[in-house]
């Protein structure tokens, strides 16, 4: 669990790790954000989906190995051992990153529904970074591991939520001060909204985005399709309540191919800023 009463002046950054990967690309992306502000606390959250435990309890289910294509039976004890190893690796990676960047950190392992745990984490963090479930096709192809220190093409979604300015600033930060491409997707319903958002973009991004995309339909499926079409390396979103609905998060987790950065203005931050 994240601290119940986090320091209100400290930026809370969380990274969601799971059993399907090493989480290294995510941690590399975080390096960009941590480097800019030492008043940051890093929280590593390792999620063990409870669905996996249920699968392990079934006596007849067999696992098809990605690496060897062998079919073997699943045993709970072996599952536990593998997950323990993954947790240890993730903890070590988070600790290493925090030490390198000179920030404080926490690490926890949580078991349960990925969507629920993700929502819980987003609610207590300014920035949450996670990786969708790996696509089946991508996960079966053994590609050379390319560790990028930062995403080269960032797609940021601007809508009528009050966190879109934070999302835009975070995208700029991830784009290393514009050495990488930024595409802005405007989700608007009316021309008035569009004007307001354009002004915001002009204020926060004086040189303008590399590409501006207007999306009038606010459905999450369309947004995911647009992001995939852009071949984004990173998606930055303001974490609105609508976005944090379980069904919406499930779509993001299942259909996106790139890491996602959810930006949220914590309540006590807002109060402090207003005061």
């Amino acid at each position: 669990m994240l601290p119940n009463n986090p320091d209100t002046t400290t930026q809370q950054v969380a990274v969601i790790l799971n059993t399907s990967g090493s989480g290294r690309p995510l941690l590399n992306i975080l390096q960009q954000l941590l480097g800019e502000d030492t008043e940051t606390q890093l929280h590593g959250v390792f999620i063990e989906d409870d669905e996996l435990q249920r699968v392990a309890a079934l006596p007849f289910v067999k696992e098809l190995s990605r690496l060897t294509l062998n079919v073997r039976e699943i045993h709970s004890t072996r599952f536990d051992r593998i997950i323990a190893l993954r947790v240890r690796t993730a903890r070590s990676a988070v600790e290493g990153l925090a030490r390198r960047m000179g920030v404080s950190h926490t690490f926890r392992k949580a078991r349960g529904s990925t969507v629920s745990l993700l929502r819980e984490t987003v609610h207590t963090s300014n920035i949450t970074v996670f990786e969708p479930s790996r696509k089946l096709a991508a996960s079966t192809i053994s590609q050379p591991l390319q560790v990028r220190s930062s995403p080269r093409h960032i797609v940021v979604v601007i809508d009528d939520t009050d966190t879109c300015d934070k999302a835009l600033l975070t995208a700029t930060l991830l784009a290393k001060g514009r050495t990488h491409r930024i595409t802005v997707i405007l989700r608007v319903k009316t021309p008035v909204e569009e004007d307001a958002m354009n002004r915001l973009i002009n204020d926060l991004l004086p040189t303008g985005p590399d590409h501006l995309l207007l999306l009038q339909d606010k459905g999450i499926q369309n947004l995911v399709a647009a992001v995939r079409a852009e071949r984004a390396d990173m998606l930055v979103l303001g974490a609105s309540e609508e976005l944090l609905k379980p069904e919406t998060l499930r779509v993001l987790l299942k259909h996106l191919e790139c890491p996602v950065c959810l930006v949220r203005q914590l309540q006590n931050h807002v109060n402090e800023s207003a005061g």
Partner: peptide, 20 residues
């Protein structure tokens, strides 16, 4: 579904993984 090392086919019942 994806497992830590690969894939598994799971029988479902009422959109839930069937209990043993």
């Amino acid at each position: 579904i994806q497992t830590p090392n690969g894939f598994a086919f799971i029988p479902m019942q009422d959109n839930e993984v069937i209990k043993p």
